[in-house]
């Protein structure tokens, strides 16, 4: 089964981490991604630019509305994702718990809809 691990970072909590942990963050992600890839269970993954760079599009009555934002309503914002292909939820949860941001933010684990099941 495929699962998307959505990484919700919390900038405030992150800022409170010790400097050496913050400095090592990027390295931790590199290491984690390598480990995930080596397991053969990584399908895709990327980090996103900050929410201040986001643009929102909606179409109403055939008219495209483009706006700045969204503005973060909570402290946690989507900062990246992985897609893993694993036997079951427990395995996906094991990978989710090892994502560095799990320690300062939250990881949402969602099964990917398999179109073959529809």
């Amino acid at each position: 089964m495929k699962y998307m691990l959505l990484i919700y970072g919390d900038a405030e909590k992150f800022a409170k981490l010790p400097a050496e942990v913050r400095d090592g963050w990027h390295g931790e992600y590199m290491e984690y991604t390598q480990k995930l890839a080596a397991s053969g269970e990584l399908v895709a993954g990327d980090a996103l630019q900050g929410i201040d760079t986001a643009t929102t599009v909606a179409v109403e009555d055939g008219k495209t509305l483009t706006t700045d934002g969204p503005f973060a309503e909570t402290k946690e914002t989507l900062g990246g994702f992985y897609i893993v292909d694993v036997p079951d939820l427990d395995r996906a949860l094991v990978w989710a718990a090892q994502i560095p941001d799990a320690r300062s933010g939250k990881i949402e684990v969602r099964p990917v809809l398999d179109l073959g099941d529809m």
Binding site: M1, Y3, P87, D88, L89, D90, A92, V94, P111
Partner: peptide
């Protein structure tokens, strides 16, 4: 069923 919650005994760490 949909989220793939397994029918198995958790691993030693879990």
């Amino acid at each position: 069923r949909v989220a793939g919650i397994p029918y198995r005994i958790p691993t030693a760490t879990e």
